[in-house]
Every structure is written in C-alpha cells, then in structure tokens.
C-alpha cells in the first residue's frame, strides 16, 4: 500500500458525489444573497429553512467524520516510528475507533433527520489537512484546528437540538462533543512533546493550524455573532485545553475570514 494517499484517491461508493469548495465560492448568487436581509444565520428553530439547513449541516458532519477517520488511519500508517512515535500511533488508532463511532452516529442521526447517505455533496478539504508530510502539522491541522471546529459545530448542533426539543440530536451531539474534547487535547499534547526541542517546527505547525482555522471560518461560517451559522464554543474549547488567548485568536481569524470572504464575493460580482 502506498504511503501518502492524496484526497482524489479517497475511496467512496456510488452514492457519494464530490464537490469543490471553489464552485461554492464562485457561485454568482453569493453576491446577491449578501445584499438580502434574510435574518440571522445562526442555526435556530424558526429561522429560515432551519430544518433543511440542519439536515445539510448534518450530512457535512457525516462526510467530515469519514474523512477524520481516514486521516487518523493514514497518520497511523504513513509514518515510521522515528517520525511518529509508537504512542502517537496508538492515539491515532484510538481516534480511528472514535471517528468510526462518529460516522455511525452521524448515519443514524442523518436518518433521524430524514437525510439519505449521499443526499448532499462532499468536499474533501478536511482530509486535505490530514495530508501534510509532517505528523506534527497533521496533528495541528486536524486535531487542534478541525477537531476544534468540530467542538464548535457539535456545540451549535447540541444547542439546536436543545431549543428545538429534539432529544436524539442533543443526546448524540453531546457524546460526540465529549470525544472531540479528547482529540483536541491529544493534538495539543503531541504538539508539545514532538516540538519540545524544535521551536521552528512548532511555529510551522501553529502556522498551519492558523491557515486551517481561517479556511474553515471562510465567509463567516464560524464566529461569535448571530450572523455566524456556527458559534465559537469558548467554554468547551477551554475544557479541551485552549487558552483564552488562543480562542481570541481564532475569533479574530474568523472575523478576518468573514471580511475576506465578503470582499471575494464583491470582487467576483464586479469581475
């Protein structure tokens, strides 16, 4: 089996349809939508099309969990023990089990929410963060940035389940949230251990994390206002070991990403 599997080689059955994030960015409707007053974007019952938006997001979580499973598996395989210590590989194997459970949960939750596997398209940018050639970069990009994002997403969905009185959604999201806190801790721990004597490597990894954090805040997807569909879960992030400064930095990156996204939409519209 080859080492370093590129995203285009991820194996899927015929139900899955892949999409490119660029198609979404370049959609000519974006500029027009930004001119509309369609109300706060935060997911909540009573907001426009909240059921279909929640179903769509749930499917995105499902495909994200598959890619997180694949990414953890590849990190267990791609490196020898000089690059990724035995204990790190054990953690990745543990994460495989957790992510496999999350895929199971997501499938059942999707069914509960009336969604079929493959109903919506799949973008592979989560797995792309798991393709970095340095395991420390993978841990920062996946465990700290993306699993951190998962904390925000699951917390938002849990709140949505709570306010909409959906006991199944709230129950499942709460369990997945607990696992993600563990995964973030795992990433932080390995970042510290593997870069203890290599500050440059540490800085490269943190830079990569910032890039991923910003990418996933694209167009204001995540933030701290009613305009952001996904809310930064400060309390849960603190439990996962993020410092207040780190959380503030993510909030700033999110705001920056929102402004840049807006500018890109305007530029595409005037082009």
């Amino acid at each position: 089996m080859r080492k370093q599997l590129p995203p285009e080689m991820l194996a899927r059955d015929s139900r899955f349809v892949r999409t490119s994030i660029m198609d979404q960015i370049l959609d000519p409707r974006n500029r027009k939508i930004s001119e509309r007053t369609i109300g706060p974007a935060k997911l909540a019952p009573g907001r426009p099309a909240s059921a279909d938006r929640a179903r769509n997001l749930m499917h995105g979580i499902f495909t994200g969990e598959i890619q997180a499973l694949e990414g953890a598996g590849r990190t267990a395989f791609d490196f020898d023990e000089t690059e990724a210590p035995f204990a790190l590989k054990l953690d990745m194997a543990r994460q495989c089990w957790d992510e496999a459970r999350h895929v199971e949960i997501s499938i059942k939750l999707g069914e509960w929410m009336g969604t079929e596997i493959g109903e919506f398209t799949e973008a592979t940018f989560l797995y792309e963060a798991a393709c970095a050639p340095d395991p420390v970069l993978r841990l920062c990009g996946v465990n700290r940035a993306l699993e951190g994002l998962a904390i925000d997403v699951f917390n938002t969905m849990k709140e949505f389940g709570d306010v909409s009185g959906d006991p199944v959604l709230e129950f499942c999201e709460d369990w997945m949230l607990a696992d993600e806190v563990t995964h973030v801790k795992m990433g932080s721990d390995w970042l510290r251990r593997l870069t203890a004597d290599d500050p440059e490597r540490r800085e490269r990894a943190l830079d990569f994390q910032r890039t991923v954090d910003k990418l996933f805040s694209l167009g204001g997807f995540r933030g701290e206002t009613e305009e952001n569909p996904i809310h930064l879960a400060r309390k849960m992030r603190e439990m996962a070991g993020f410092s207040t400064t780190e959380i503030d930095e993510i909030a700033e990156l999110s705001e920056l990403a929102r402004a840049e996204g807006q500018a890109a939409v305007e530029a595409a519209g005037s082009a």
């Binding site: 089996m1 599997l5 598996g73 194997a93 496999a100 459970r101 199971e104």
Partner: peptide, 22 residues
C-alpha cells in the same frame, strides 16, 4: 488497517476497519 480505511469504498467495511484498528 488504519491505512486501508481510506482505500475501501464500502462504508460498513470502512467503519469496521476503524474499530478493529484500535
């Protein structure tokens, strides 16, 4: 098993490999 997860298209196999990997 970890490496193969990304290479098998069958969803049930993918999840089982993830569990067995651990």
């Amino acid at each position: 098993l970890g490496g193969w997860i990304a290479t098998v298209p069958e969803l049930d196999v993918k999840m089982i490999l993830g569990r067995h990997c651990y």
